[in-house]
Nucleic acid binder design. Structure first.
Lengths: 360, 360
DNA sequence: CTGTTAGCGCTTTCAA
DNA sequence: TTGAAAGCGCTAACAG
């Protein structure tokens, strides 16, 4: 008995209930238009038979799939996992399923994901693209006139749900300056890889400029294993930075590690601040100081916007964009510059004497 | 101009190419059976028109959706995000899309996820259920004769891809004993919530028994914020444990935090070992000691098995189950019991004198 | 090699 | 209120 799936069609239910398939259809879609007695009978039989309407047939007929496409860089960064979680819950609440695809930050995959979703009859898409200004996938979407909304991206020509990263980083730099820091470095992933990275860079530059500091210290680290060691190198320099502004939390966590490898204590010898507010940051020691984004909320709002547009039957306008509030989480990885840090090379002789950086 | 999606049917392509729709269909599905000249013409026109076959119609007709359903507890635990990533890549490689649903460890959601996927015409499912022995969702699946495979779960009546947790924890306890530990406690999430938790518990019990130690120390922590404080409480007891075996990495990370709150240094004063091998564990300080599972691989293999079964047209037998190798990652959160730890109450006077546990 | 045709399961006029 | 019938877009016999 190799048969795979037990099917159950509306016809079969109709037959057993002694009604037409149209009536069964109405029981599921317009229950009010069916006599209670008949409705009940059909419902009972349908349940007994384990009948559920075939989604493909329904989609083909109504041209509504009740599925939303989602395009994300990766799920391995909790930022996007948290966001997807928000998307999923809001979508489910509105009666939509989601079809997620990841691009691993590759443009080619961005394209193919959008194509696949387009062919897959999704009613709309939520996406985090690399760069809205240049994305070909986005162009295709507009061309297809399929409603969509971007998450995390910010661009005036598209509907977006995001926080103002630039502003957030400007404020962060100001805060660090207030804490006495002047040698502040930006640690970023590949700058070209995303508009977020670029916005945060601009925030850093403007923040530094506002405090009349030189923003020469931008460090672009590849997203690989060696990153921590590279960073440790930087931290051993004579005029090492006293504060690190990291473009995202994952990077910040690596910096924490790098500081340890370099024999520096956080926050005593070095302040490290992240960006994103991923949940795990709160469980670390030191608890990660970071600019938090409401990740699940970003997902929920994006889904909400899209669902509304679908209900209205009109595409989303860029003017529907939402800027959600960010916040600063103090955490424990960021502190006032201690007096002895103003002199270079003080790192290993002050309070950290009993602290061995090396482990075997 | 409110129109939403620009459609493009096979008929339209056929018309413009001056052929029948069957020919266009063949160009996409059986290219060899079409004269090269005609094939090219059709391909050009299709591309120009941005035509892609309508997935719903194709699914309705062929009864093959090329979609795999995935049911997971949550994406907020990187274990499952990593696994999903593996599933996605293997599925994509085999020409399948995936439709993931999360249950948040709720049985009701497990049921509804399976129902929804069943109605959604998925060809097969990969799932992580709470407990294979009792899952109603699983019963429904068998009833529907839809091919499926479990991930992480282990049960002789179902096809599973997993590691042998029990064995892994037995070995771990032995290792800890070798390192001089005797007061070893198991820290687990809700034991009733998953078969994994129970397998790990059994491993702990057997391991302790094998070393003639009492396995009274099982701590079940709720998965909430207060966990760290509760744990810290435990760690301040006079005869506190010297080693914590945590049922998963997220819990282990909380324990690291709890140790800090209790003024204990890891691994000097306390050893902490996790289970799962989530990527971020390697970036922590101390690097998390843990039993690693090949999470992405589990996903890939599960998808692979399912795809094979689909190709063969036969459901998966429990005998197809795969036990993948686990490993121990030494990390830095686990060490030999230091001499002064054998005496209780030594915690705050030994090497940690300069170490302030409290932060404001 | 290509075209004609039927029908997958469902919803939705239109009549009764 | 219910039923008959058409058709969504596609593929798979079957003819030619």
């Amino acid at each position: 008995m190799p048969a795979l799936k037990v099917v159950m069609s509306i016809q079969e239910v109709a037959r057993q209930a002694g009604v037409s398939s149209a009536t069964v259809s109405r029981v599921f879609n317009l229950p009010d238009k069916v006599t209670p007695a008949i409705r009940q009978r059909v419902e009972v039989i349908a349940k007994a038979l384990g009948y559920a309407p075939n989604a493909s047939a329904r989609t083909l007929r109504t041209r509504r799939s009740r599925v939303l496409g989602v395009v994300l860089p990766t799920l391995l960064n909790p930022v996007f996992a948290e966001c997807l979680d928000g998307i999923a819950s809001a979508s489910a609440a509105a009666g939509y399923a989601i079809l997620p695809m990841t691009t691993d930050y590759k443009l080619a995959q961005e394209d193919s994901a959008v194509n696949l979703l387009l062919a897959g009859n999704v009613e709309g898409m939520i996406l985090v693209v690399s760069n809205p200004a240049t994305s070909r996938a986005l162009k295709r979407l507009k061309l297809a006139r399929l409603p969509y909304v971007l998450a995390y991206n910010r661009h005036s020509a598209h509907p977006c749900v995001s926080v103002n990263s630039e502003e957030a980083v400007i404020a962060l730099v100001a805060r660090l300056v207030t804490l006495g820091h002047t040698r502040i470095i930006l640690v970023s992933g590949q700058l070209a890889a995303s508009d977020r990275a670029q916005q945060r860079l601009r925030g850093y530059q403007q923040g530094m400029q506002a405090s009349a500091l030189k923003s020469t210290g931008v460090m672009e680290v590849p997203f690989v294993e060696s990153a921590a060691h590279q960073l440790a190198q930087l931290l051993r320099a004579p005029l090492r930075p006293t504060a690190l502004v990291c473009s995202n939390d994952l990077l910040a966590i690596r910096c924490l590690r790098a500081a340890h490898l370099a024999g520096l204590r956080v926050p005593d010898d070095l302040s490290v601040v992240g960006f994103d507010g991923i949940a795990i940051g709160q469980d670390l020691t030191p608890m990660l100081s970071t600019i938090t984004q409401p990740n699940a909320q970003i997902g929920r709002q994006a889904a909400g916007l899209l669902v509304q547009a679908l209900a209205r039957g009109t595409p989303l306008k860029p003017s529907a964009s939402l800027t959600l509030p960010h916040a600063f989480r103090m955490g424990e990885s960021c502190a006032r510059l201690s007096p002895d840090q103003t002199k270079p090379k003080s790192q290993s002789k002050s309070k950290s004497k009993k602290f061995s950086a090396k482990k075997t």
